[in-house]
Design a protein around this nucleic acid. Structure first.
Length: 539
DNA sequence: CACTAGTGCAA
DNA sequence: TATTGCACTAGTG
């Protein structure tokens, strides 16, 4: 390895261990569980042999192996400190740690600095967490969640490879055909994926009406192309090309590449420290943005399946963010709407428009629904006028009418921003903080962005707290009574694999644990669906 | 290889 | 001028 660059690219040393054993890779991606003494020798051997230095070591295969062996993982480490400890138990100072590992790896000690710092600052981090009043959040929510996530990643989800391959080939043909059609319309060959070249074709050669301005010229995004749809036949082909090539390049192809050859399943990685609001994120692959809306996109969800004699069960929180908003703001009318019945948005629309529930038109319902969601993102009057396609004065009166019905909503939101400006951070129901230095910015755009973040963070963050707590509860219940396996988490949804003959038990257990995760004024409601594929189960 | 911009998928 | 993410492609340095 030539040095710093290689290490920075994830070729860090990874270990999983407890007091009895330590897991290390002995060749790429192949992890072994070893008694602690043997592990030390093996590790030392690996690192000393220059031909085997590349042997390194994603954490995932390590803990997967550990879990298959039925192990309880105590720690998962990705740094040089433990390596140094294993190689030279006497290496304790930061410098000797770095120097020891650096020598074995044939890299400079400075390369090791960052990783070593993680170990060195651990006590300081604990002190900070305590000082910020979030030690409890860490020890009762985030730390216990680590193992739950590890089990889910290790389990993976089954995909229908044959089906996915057919889909991929089909998409491939369509992309090729559409590309030709577009170039026919354009009268020349060009790279359809290049926005620069595309802009030249659309706005210069074909002289289509100019669209929204962007840094590099004029936008060619789907919303703008829709407006040009009548102007030239190339536009329809382009929109379809975008849709299909997105699905092929971004989904079918990637998913096929990430099917684990041994388990035949897809194992995502959840990032616990990425989203500023406390949400989880998912990478390699991101299973939190698998298409669901379009019919073509939905086909991709059909590839996620249950093994024979099993079904997938999807349990999602109904309107969790709006419920959190209702709870935190203590707006009685808003809370009552949840208690009344099933169609929340229609109930709110009836109040806003001052009509009976049966007189709510779909247009009314849709406008109100969009604004209700927009509230949690800090949508402005201008935003309302854009999204609802109305004039500014109409948008302003809509906003007034809406908040007139739910006065505590606006009070709560304003108070959030004021408090965040004083404290410098927002707080969720479980005490999670988001620091917002943007609120002090002299840059108008940045400052107003900070204000919207201050509105959104407690709501999105509390919802994240709740589902995390639910996951810990569900996991604990499932370990006592293994009637299902928890596979995925998608912000307000949990996906399980359930033996068909355990379905009733699993459903009851999951619903109970999720519903009990928090005590909201307006309650928590969980919708459960099952099916052979994720497409069916999500419905 | 590192970085940005543009685009588009999800909750 | 509606939040939070991940990932792809093109293009620059």
């Amino acid at each position: 390895m030539n040095s710093e660059a290689d290490l920075r690219q994830g070729e860090a040393i990874a270990f999983a261990w407890n007091k009895d054993w330590l897991a290390v890779s002995d060749k790429l991606g192949e992890a072994r569980i070893l008694p602690i003494d043997d592990a030390m020798k093996r590790l030392a051997g690996c690192l000393k042999d220059p031909n085997r230095r590349k042997i390194v070591h994603d954490a995932k295969p390590l803990y997967r192996s550990a879990l298959s062996a039925g192990a309880e993982i105590e720690g998962l480490y990705c740094d040089t400190k433990i390596a140094a400890y294993l190689l030279e138990p006497g290496a304790t100072s930061a410098y000797t740690v770095r120097d020891t590992v650096g020598r074995y790896l044939g890299v400079s000690q400075s390369v090791c600095r960052e990783a070593v710092a993680v170990g060195a600052v651990a006590p300081v981090v604990e002190q900070q967490l305590r000082a910020q009043g979030i030690w409890e959040l860490a020890t009762t929510l985030e730390f216990p969640l680590i193992q739950v996530l590890a089990r889910m990643e290790h389990e993976g989800i089954l995909v229908d490879r044959d089906y996915l391959e057919k889909l991929n080939a089909d998409f491939g043909q369509r992309v090729t055909a559409l590309e030709s059609a577009i170039q026919q319309h354009a009268g020349e060959e060009f790279n359809v994926n290049s926005n620069l070249q595309l802009q030249r074709i659309l706005f210069e050669k074909l002289a289509l009406p100019k669209t929204r301005k962007i840094k590099t010229g004029y936008s060619t995004d789907a919303a703008e192309l829709e407006k040009l749809a009548g102007s030239h036949p190339i536009v329809a082909s382009l929109l379809e090309y975008r849709e299909v090539s997105k699905l092929k390049n971004g989904f079918t192809e990637m998913l096929l590449a990430l099917i684990d050859p041994k388990s035949h399943r897809i194992h995502t990685t959840y990032e616990q420290t990425t989203a500023a609001t406390g949400r989880l994120s998912s990478t390699a692959p991101n299973l939190q943005n698998i298409p669901i809306r379009g019919e073509i996109g939905r086909q991709i969800r059909r590839a996620f399946i249950a093994p024979p004699a099993h079904v997938l069960l999807s349990a999602d929180y109904s309107q969790i963010e709006l419920r959190v908003l209702a709870h935190l703001s203590e707006d009685e009318m808003f809370c009552q709407a949840f208690a009344q019945g099933h169609d929340f948005h229609a109930i709110i629309a009836a109040k806003v428009y001052g009509v009976g529930l049966s007189d709510v038109t779909s247009a009314m319902r849709n406008q109100v629904k969009q604004f209700s969601y927009g509230i949690a993102y800090g949508m402005s009057t201008y935003g309302v006028s854009q999204r609802l396609g109305v004039e500014m004065d109409e948008a302003a009166s809509f906003v007034e009418t809406y908040y007139g019905q739910f006065p505590k909503l606006r009070e709560f939101l304003a108070a959030q921003v004021e408090k965040a400006k004083i404290d410098g951070f927002t707080t969720t129901m479980f005490g999670r903080r988001r620091y917002l230095p943007e609120l002090l910015s002299s840059n108008f755009r940045l400052r107003t962005l900070g204000e919207r973040m201050a509105l959104n963070a407690p709501i999105q963050g509390t919802a994240a707290d709740i589902i995390k707590k639910a996951m810990i509860g569900v996991d604990a219940a499932l370990r006592k009574e293994p009637v299902a396996k928890m596979l995925l988490t998608v912000h307000d949804e949990l996906v399980f694999e359930v033996p068909i003959d355990k379905l009733d038990q699993a459903r009851a257990l999951i619903e109970k644990a999720m519903t009990q995760a928090a005590d909201l004024r307006c309650g928590l409601v969980v919708d459960v669906h099952t099916g052979t594929s994720w497409a069916e189960a999500h419905a």
